[in-house]
Write a protein that binds this DNA or RNA. Sequence first.
DNA 1: TCAATTATACGAAGCTTTTCGTAAAAAGAA
DNA 2: TTCTTTTTACGAAAAGCTTCGTATAATTGA
Lengths: 133, 133
Amino acid sequence: MENTAPLKPTETELEILQILWQHGPSTVRFVNEEQSKTKETGYTTTLKLLQIMHEKNLVTRDEESRSHVYRAAVTEEETQQHLLGRFLDTAFRGSAMKLVMQALGNHRTTPDELNQIRHLLKKLEDDSSNADS
Amino acid sequence: MENTAPLKPTETELEILQILWQHGPSTVRFVNEEQSKTKETGYTTTLKLLQIMHEKNLVTRDEESRSHVYRAAVTEEETQQHLLGRFLDTAFRGSAMKLVMQALGNHRTTPDELNQIRHLLKKLEDDSSNADS
DNA sequence: TCAATTATACGAAGCTTTTCGTAAAAAGAA
DNA sequence: TTCTTTTTACGAAAAGCTTCGTATAATTGA
């Protein structure tokens, strides 16, 4: 087994993953065009990044057609989960609560979203009350 | 004016800021010892970092005594706020809600903390209902 | 067929961040 | 005083990430 689990994309790698998650399997050209919407990026720069990500097993690629098609090899959720864990430790000393409070307090959240969170809170409460059953 | 506002500490700089926030103004030696609890770190490595942070205005220093005393020049809250904003964009495409849900769902949160969040939710709700007054 | 276009591969330059070696000054101990 | 320890300063090596130039192969189309 040489398939060491990946996870810990760099900033730019994460940008590319976002594109793949959002649009599904894509060619280098497509990824590059998406990337260029935000910031001028050379074609070979994108190519190189995808090749590196391929080596790291962050993406897989289909080499059938001449233009290889890359696809994310990690899910958005697991990556977010991992990044969140790290971020929590480095920036909030592990206090999920503090992070949540700041996130809720300082970023516009719609009433509907607040409701969803309320539901989650209720669920968490229920779960914890029969935690030891 | 050459006092350009700082903010955007690197990973290691953040670690050091955490130490300063937690323990207050400290000497290089102290910071280094704290740092070494986690990961072997050379004294001059810590020193250099603090010097760089000083140049960037991330910390100030008192040069009275021979051993300079460094102190954080940015607050934990403003830094967290800034980092959170960036993190939200890069990892959660700006959705504070998604982040909150994941943070609450996957990291132990005590009933008391859940309560605090509930209070915050209530407050947010109240605020929004007289938002246009 | 042959030139122009579009791909991949690859190495290396360019940056940023981190680590460390060394020199010099200050303080303390013998 | 003189040797040792502790400190700052500084430069540069080391490491990691991003960007780009160039070579080469495949494809297209005139």
